[in-house]
Amino acid sequence: MKAVICPDFAPVDALTSGDFPAPQAGPGELVINVAAAGVNYPDVLIVQGKYQTKPALPFVPGSEAAGHVAAVGEGVQGFAAGDRVAAFTGSGSFAEQVRVPATQAWPVPGAVDLHVAAGISITYGTSYHALKDRGQLKPGETLLVLGAGGGVGLTAVELGKLMGARVIAAASSAEKLALAKQQGADELIDYAREDLRERVKALTGGQGVDVVYDPVGGPMNLTAIKSLAWGGRLLVIGFAGGEIPSIPANLLLLKSASAVGVLWGNTVRADPAGQGANMRQLLDWLAQGKLRPVIDRRFAMPDIVAALHHLEARKVKGKVLLTIAPEA
């Protein structure tokens, strides 16, 4: 099969495209004919060996996909050849076929474009798990989303609003904030030009926010902690800013606040039933038009290096997709 191949851990320019052995469905697994794959910032790190997981070399990168079931392994129930599915694969998605545990694949309703569904699992899956399961966001609470113009940030804005929260979106440019407003944000903060803490104080009458969604890390993390209300929850999503912050325990103590880690991929493996229910809810909302994913750009498989450089430049607004086959 045709695939993107990572022969060694190296800068993304070392990736090649060529023939790779087609996967076979083992017990409990599916093989999927890939229509499209989501391209995520962790993919940039994985191919360089800078991520917390390192696939055995050589490997096909790509952590999520959507397409049609090609083969069903022994013991798998609820799937048949030809079914439309979205999947969290961990690796292998940048290819014509990918193998995945059946517990990490979910039916895609007929009303949903498979190419759009390819980019749902990691961003929306992470944000829904973060807000619902880890942050226990309640209707009427105030949610502050940092990095609100990026891939996961936009989904947190959209889901927070859908879940009944008042959403404050914070980002580094007017263009990114306009997208956040489009996705439902109630209030906007341009932290490249405004003091984040003072604006949060002004917008909340000095009370602070109930939940902070932080995929950025870096020095802004401390400001976010100081902006929490009594009993607030800081959701640690990632470190797109490059710096892993140190969290002062005394600030959490003084506000009876919590800092909560969110690692969705491992949660899918640890709790497939719970995250499967979350994914089915998300795909149902997508079919109903309650979710409106923002697609930044679409690349063809031979252009994967350009796609990853696009992510490296940190100018992505929404989701980047890799088209493998026409939607059908």
Rank of each mutant, 00 (worst) to 15 (best):
L235H: 08
V200G: 00
K181N: 01
A306T: 15
G153W: 04
G26Q: 10
R269C: 09
K319F: 12
R233I: 12
T267S: 01
P21M: 11
Q183N: 05
D43N: 08
A313H: 12
A22E: 15
L45E: 02
V152S: 03
A169K: 10
K176R: 02
F94R: 09
R297W: 07
V200W: 06
E158L: 03
C6M: 05
A249C: 15
K2C: 05
Q77N: 11
A56Y: 12
F79T: 13
A277T: 08
G135S: 10
K290T: 02
V72Y: 09
A25S: 14
L154Y: 01
P109Y: 06
H309M: 07
G49Q: 10
F79V: 13
G184I: 15
K317S: 04
H68P: 12
V72E: 02
G125D: 04
R269H: 08
L282P: 04
V268L: 14
V60R: 02
E74K: 08
T223W: 14
D210K: 00
Y213L: 03
K317R: 10
L308E: 10
L57R: 01
L45W: 05
G242W: 15
N250H: 13
E194Y: 09
R166D: 08
I120N: 04
K201H: 08
D19S: 07
N266F: 07
L203V: 00
A325L: 12
D83W: 11
A130T: 01
D190F: 03
G265L: 05
G82Q: 09
G231Q: 03
E198G: 04
T204N: 01
G241T: 15
W230I: 13
Q97L: 11
R314T: 02
D83H: 05
A306V: 14
L131I: 12
K54I: 09
G265S: 09
V200H: 02
A111N: 08
I189T: 04
D190K: 05
L254P: 06
G149D: 01
